[in-house]
Design a binder for these strands. Structure first.
Length: 203
DNA sequence: GTCCCGATTCCCT
DNA sequence: GGGAATCGGGACC
């Protein structure tokens, strides 16, 4: 791992996902094969208090990892072909990693993402991010602090944005009014960017 | 750029 | 048996 990249403290994840989520912006997802990307978009899922969460109706085989200790990776499968990656906050809660800016190991990411036309298509969505990093079922439960299975989230000292963009979550059909999606403002690698506001007409 | 649609597997009801 | 924390391609503007 490059100099100055440091693991997050375990306690980082021991908070409500709506606090953890914005704090994860500008942190770095790393694998021990050299892949690294800056997290630029996240969503909070608040367990049994959140109708849109996989864990809303309690623990099942699929979501068991989210009920385990905070700071681990919860990996789920959906739409018959896509994987999603979350940081677990405990009690069925977690933060979905929605988009990241590739920093290192970009050739390997391109090899995993043959459909990507441009580098900003490599990890600009939860399924794309997981595919770029080769994250599947096998990494469900990996410890993101100890990196016991070669995946971690670290800091390079960059702070989260002072004023992240906050808005509704994407791809859900319940609790659509919860403004629990955060992203770095004006960032090229975000999955769905805010509609560009037109400059005022002069006439 | 926007909108629409089909793909394809698993888990839970 | 339904529907899913999505993606990419094609039509159209």
């Amino acid at each position: 791992m490059p100099d100055g990249w440091t693991p997050l403290p375990k306690g980082f994840y021991h908070r409500h996902p709506t606090l953890v989520a914005p704090d994860l912006l500008n942190k770095i997802l790393v694998r021990d094969d050299g892949r690294a990307a800056r997290i630029v978009e996240v969503e909070a899922y608040a367990g049994q208090e959140d109708p849109a969460a996989h864990s809303f109706r309690g623990q099942t085989l699929r979501n068991a990892t989210m009920f385990g200790p905070p700071g681990h990776l919860y990996v789920y499968f959906t739409y018959g072909m896509h994987w999603g990656s979350n940081a677990v906050c405990g009690n069925g809660m977690g933060v979905l990693l929605r988009a990241a800016e590739p920093l290192k190991g970009v050739d390997l990411m391109r090899a995993c993402r043959v459909a990507a036309k441009r580098d900003r298509d490599l990890a600009s969505g939860p399924g794309k991010l997981s595919q770029a990093f080769g994250i599947t079922r096998e990494l469900d439960g990996a410890d993101l602090v100890l990196a016991d299975r070669g995946v971690a989230i670290v800091s390079d000292g960059t702070r989260p944005p002072r004023k992240p963009v906050v808005g509704p979550r994407i791809g859900i059909s319940k609790a659509m009014d919860f403004p629990w999606r955060w992203h770095v403002p004006d960032h090229e690698h975000v999955s769905v960017r805010a509609p560009r506001t037109l400059p005022p007409r002069t006439r």
